[in-house]
Nucleic acid binder design. Sequence first.
DNA 1: GCTTACCTGTCG
DNA 2: CGACAGGTAAGC
Length: 298
Amino acid sequence: MPELPEVEVIRREIEPLIKNKTFDVPVLYMPSTVDYPSPDEFTTSLPGRTAKNARRKGKYLLIDLNDGILAIHLRMTGSLLYKEESVNHEAAAEESAKTNETIPADQRFLRLAMPFTDGSVLHFSDMRRFGRVWLVENEEQLQTIVLKNVGPDLLNDLCCEEFIELLQKRKRSQLKALLLDQGFAAGMGNIYTDECLFRCGIHPRRQAETLSPADAEQLYRSIQDVLADGIEHGGTTFRDYRNSSGALGDFQSRLAVYGRKDEPCSCGAAIEKITAAGRGTYYCPRCQAEQTGEEGCD
DNA sequence: GCTTACCTGTCG
DNA sequence: CGACAGGTAAGC
């Protein structure tokens, strides 16, 4: 579900709420949610550690502890919810069974509850079970175990010149594939990639080496702008995304192409859906024309 | 590169 | 019922 803006929204919300709070014993409803260390080791070694601040690299949320780092990736449908008070889930489930209520998704798909000693709690829920959590002891473990294939963060780690340098090393790549490649640069996902390429008028299948220096700079600006806009509007709720207090994002109302197959672009042309880099890809055939041929043959 | 697998749900 | 879904790792 979440791409960089959604993770950043959660990070900003959560940081002041958990700062200087000490973890109590977590409840691991689905052991495979913890990727490192073993589920048992995770459960016994988290209690007593204190949250200091929350950072982000690409789509990874990183909570620095007084000792070690808690890393979280929400993948497709994960959510991280903060609650002021712990609730007894089994009792709540029984209660809703009696009254025929639907169990809210965050309880039904609860994978890991991480209470603090003050009674507040972080809930990691995930319908599709792709999301993962890691507890590492230091920055070196973070890099080798969690972030081994993650490139520089698109918002925090790259200026325009550095971005263009990276582009030049990947001349043969399709732009859509390149932007989705977290090893190239981290943070873009399927929605923001399509929106970004629309904003700079670049066809998703275009090859990196066909970009002029001006195109490349435009691409960088569009990435910065679309990510900033996503954050400003609280992220995109296309289906499942919720922020850490359960609220919906708002950026979906501003999507220019994503999810809008056959609808008119602002230019009047019908938006098309194709497959690029193995993903459903939306674009405007007029605003994002393919390369016009002459230099296409080598 | 592309495909498959990982999961569960929703939509056509 | 099949196709597809905000992500990524692993397999040709």
